[in-house]
Simulated assay, not measured.
Amino acid sequence: MKKVLIINGHPDRESFNWALAKTYSEAAHNANAKVETINLVDLHFDPVLKYGYRRPYPLEPDLETAIEKMKEAEHLVWVFPMWWYGVPALLKGFIDRTFLPGITFKYQKGKLFPSKLLKGKTARIIVTADTVSWYNRWVMKNPAINQFKKGILEFCGVKPVKVTYLAPIKSSSMQKRKNWLLEINKLGARQA
């Protein structure tokens, strides 16, 4: 039984992101995976890493629980909108507060790169946006995806990291959204 953790980074419970996270969860559960979901908006934590890595900042209980769930999971599914070619502040704050030295990576004396503490895990990033994919890829160079995939997940050892980019959301028809939900259902059924 595969252990799947879905992290929903959209703060609006009525957003399409919530429907995507729910669809993936239900499909994975129906395929006999052990599935848990963290809706970041439900957590109580200060999203500001006040001292950087200079001095420790105590983790709130919700963050401690989230870290344990991430460590236990085999497959991480991140669902979030791309806003201003980046991730929402809530998700960025969650990453800043949980992807810490000794938790997701560890500095190595005399070495350029830290050791990766999330090795053995895989991930799926489901990104929604209003920017058409060709513009995001060729003109903007995939900033949110590159940061999240390479600068965060792969940096900490998560591989492979696959991406599903759904856009444009704002002008999408109900039929298009149904098709996207069917696509996410198939991914959830395979825990891919």
Rank of each mutant, 00 (worst) to 15 (best):
P114V: 01
P61L: 03
T128E: 10
Y135I: 15
G110F: 01
T128F: 13
K111H: 07
P81E: 05
L63N: 15
K106T: 08
P114F: 00
W84D: 02
F105Q: 03
D96W: 06
I126E: 04
V87H: 08
T128N: 12
K111I: 00
T65P: 02
I126W: 01
P61Q: 01
F80Q: 15
S115Q: 01
E64I: 14
I125G: 14
G120A: 14
W84K: 04
L112Q: 07
L59R: 15
F80C: 13
T98G: 11
W83H: 08
R97M: 10
M82C: 05
Q108R: 03
K121I: 09
L118V: 01
K69C: 08
I67Q: 12
N136R: 01
I103N: 14
P58N: 15
W78R: 10
Y135D: 08
I125M: 15
K69E: 10
F99P: 02
E64D: 11
L112Y: 11
L117F: 10
Y107C: 02
V132E: 06
F99D: 01
T65K: 14
P101N: 02
K111P: 03
A73L: 09
P61C: 06
P58K: 12
A89G: 10
L59H: 14
W134A: 10
I103A: 02
K106S: 12
Q108M: 01
A66E: 10
K92D: 14
G120C: 13
Q108W: 00
P61S: 09
K69M: 07
T131K: 12
W83C: 01
R124W: 09
A129I: 07
I103M: 10
I125Y: 06
F113G: 00
P81A: 07
P114R: 00
T65G: 05
K109Y: 09
L118Q: 14
D96R: 11
K116E: 14
A66C: 03
G86W: 00
G102R: 09
P101L: 03
D62T: 10
K69A: 13
